[in-house]
Design a protein around this nucleic acid. Structure first.
Lengths: 244, 244
DNA sequence: CAGTGGTCTAGACCACTTC
DNA sequence: AAGTGGTCTAGACCACTGC
């Protein structure tokens, strides 16, 4: 009973099932927003009990790879769904309730990656990447300046025009237009003094303190596909984090 | 079978069991670092199946309130254990492997809370709190300046001398000496320009960008008992966060 | 009403720790 | 060998959804 479709794998059964489901997700067998087969169906497919499939799916749900809906089914996580919109954004207004950011794209072009970005994206420094620059305003005040770097081959045909047409989170755009779903991300945060470029983009005095947030996002298979270097002006906002 | 010691509670059984265990933790029936009764014992005590107790404990383990050790038992989480040391610290060196901070306490006194701290600790602005100031050095360079505010009645008898004698994380100190275990925390992060006081503590030029991290820590029952206002100098270090 | 996920149980066996 | 948590199963029933 311990053997499986691919056996010779020594880990709990539910782990193996989880990995098989993960494989199907990565292969695109089930698309973001769509339901995966029911627990009963998966139990038959993998020849295990429903309880074991359940535990595998529980693990995937805990990692936000799928979302369960009682009575309806289990669905592949999608950044286009309300539940996952702005999932990676930890920016919060100090006072007012809701964060409303208005995006303004400045450029979108192909450039050489360079050492730093290349290392993060696990490519060569001489490889090209797509660079997008934008600012975001909070109640009319420019508050965020962002440089985004994308792996070239996954985002063929991206352009300033298409970015301007889209409204909603970029991660939804990546899913809809480039079949790329972001699974998790990591951020490295520092405080820096604004140089002249940053100061002008954010209409600040040179030297003003800014939050520098470097985010690296991963798709299925822990493949890094996007790096964002963001600068936040934090007099009206803050980065919020919960520690458990 | 749905009723229980205190019945009339409409939530899943395992939730009720979880709450009962939580109650015992809060009441101090089992101390940090010590084992709680085995799953079998708890199942008998609450008159439910072992599987239901298991699910309750799983939930507690997921929130880092207890830690499971196969073959040994389930233990109340303690900041004195390796697994939980520096659990709330997200500061990481850019290059070197390990973060070694040397603590230097500056003062420890009773002061009026003031509006801001009082609101965070859910006390009155005129109530007194204990204020501790310290710096921390990274390879000899002063890197962190921290003001810590503690609820007075939980930390009777704290003093600069006792702080200086203690080595190890402060949260372990709180547990050992004041019977107070921190369960979770939240942080609000901004970038600020160093004023003269901060600049002198950290041996920097006035106006240097610093990471301002305001942490609020909670004991059992979601009671806030500590606020830390920390300032990090982030040229060699960064705040690291994983998003899922 | 049928189908989905959610809860609960009882029992078997495995893996690790301690004596 | 005895006791702990960890896995797996099978089956019953509940709660929610949609036809």
């Amino acid at each position: 009973m311990r053997s499986l479709e691919q056996s010779a794998n020594f880990s709990p059964l539910y782990q193996q099932i989880k990995d098989l489901i993960l494989g199907s997700l990565q292969a695109g067998e089930w698309q973001p927003g769509q339901p995966i087969p029911s627990e009963m169906e998966l139990a038959e497919r993998y020849k295990v009990s429903q309880g074991t499939v359940r535990k595998a799916i529980d693990a995937l749900a805990a990692e936000n790879l799928v979302i369960r809906h009682q009575g309806k089914g289990t669905f592949v996580a999608s950044h286009r769904e309300d539940a996952f919109q702005y999932r990676f954004l930890r920016l919060v207004p100090d006072e007012s309730q809701e964060l409303i950011l208005k995006s303004h794209f400045l450029s979108c072009q192909s450039i050489k990656a360079g050492e730093h970005i290349a290392a993060l994206l696990k490519i060569k420094a001489t490889d090209s990447v797509i660079e997008i620059k934008r600012t975001q305003s909070f109640f009319g005040k420019p508050t965020v300046f962002e440089c985004i770097y994308l792996i070239t081959n996954r985002f063929q045909g991206i352009s300033l025009e298409r970015l301007n047409v889209w409204n909603g989170p970029l991660y939804g755009f990546y899913e809809s237009e480039f079949n790329t779903h972001m699974v998790w991300a990591e951020e490295r945060i520092k405080a820096i003094n604004a140089d002249e470029e940053l100061a002008s983009h954010l209409q600040l005095a040179k030297g003003s303190a800014l939050l520098s947030v470097e985010r690296r996002s991963f798709t299925y298979g822990n493949k890094p596909v996007e790096v964002r270097v963001a600068h936040y002006e934090t007099t009206q906002l803050h980065y919020f984090n919960e520690l458990s």
